[in-house]
Design a protein around this nucleic acid. Structure first.
Length: 231
DNA sequence: AGGATTTGACCATT
DNA sequence: AATGGTCAAATCCT
């Protein structure tokens, strides 16, 4: 595993090691549960898939596309953990050091709204650095979320597939082959927040035509339980 | 053709 | 030996 090079994994007692793993908030990892497979704002490349013991669905392994060209060490694991309703657990390890600004401008679906395009680009630039506390999404960005939400729901038609099928890859394929459309939950997850995600997810899944962005932004300002932003 | 995905093999850990 | 994580050749996709 990628932690094999971590000093603590070799020298701390077993109990502490387990705690290190489970208390991901205090370690360099973060787990998000989402009801939909959507883009999180970063470019990922799948490098493996593994059947996990006692797990109904395989685990998928992704690394940052810029692992080599920008030495970005961010990786994530995506695994479906529940059938009905579909629930996917994404575990992030490390954080993005890459400057993936390309996708930022693609936040906005309406190309005529230049002001909001600029706003969104600013947001992403902060996202890449993990410093975005004072930034709020623009109105058109929120509009784009709604559109994305609908797309997410549409894609979920393909999610009830047997184990041999790989919905996580489906979602990644779509994200890489078309414009990067971000749902609210992924918009937030792109910020590397730990606890924001769950609340945002509920907004995404319970509302098909509108989003409670006030609630989202309140939670986004919540940062981390540790009071530490990012990692 | 180039980049992304698939998937069996390999390696590290327990 | 079992399991999880990564590698890399083959394959797919645009």
């Amino acid at each position: 595993m990628h932690f094999s090079s971590n000093f603590f994994f070799y020298f701390i007692p077993i109990t502490l090691k387990l705690n290190f793993i489970t208390c991901r908030k205090s370690s360099h990892s973060r787990t998000d549960d989402s009801t939909a497979l959507t883009d999180d704002g970063h470019a990922w490349r799948k490098y493996g898939q593994k059947v996990i013991l006692n797990a109904k669905y395989p685990r998928n392994y992704f690394r940052c596309t810029h692992k080599y060209d920008q030495q970005c060490q961010a990786i994530k694991q995506v695994q479906r953990i529940q059938e009905e309703p579909p629930l996917y657990r994404t575990t992030y390890y490390g954080h993005h050091t890459c400057k993936n600004l390309l996708k930022a401008s693609q936040f906005v679906l309406d190309p005529s709204d230049h002001h909001d395009i600029i706003d969104s680009s600013i947001l992403i630039s902060f996202n890449s650095n993990g410093d975005h506390a004072s930034n709020k999404p623009s109105n058109s960005l929120l509009t784009s979320f709604q559109t994305v939400k609908q797309e997410c729901c549409h894609k979920e038609d393909d999610m009830n597939m047997p184990i041999s099928y790989d919905p996580t890859t489906q979602y990644n394929n779509q994200a890489s082959s078309s414009d990067y459309l971000l749902s609210p939950d992924d918009y937030m997850s792109a910020f590397d927040h730990g606890d924001v995600i769950s609340g945002v997810n509920s907004s995404c899944t319970t509302s098909s035509h509108s989003l409670d962005m006030d609630g989202i932004m309140m939670e986004s300002a919540d940062f981390d339980d540790d009071g530490v932003f990012g990692f």
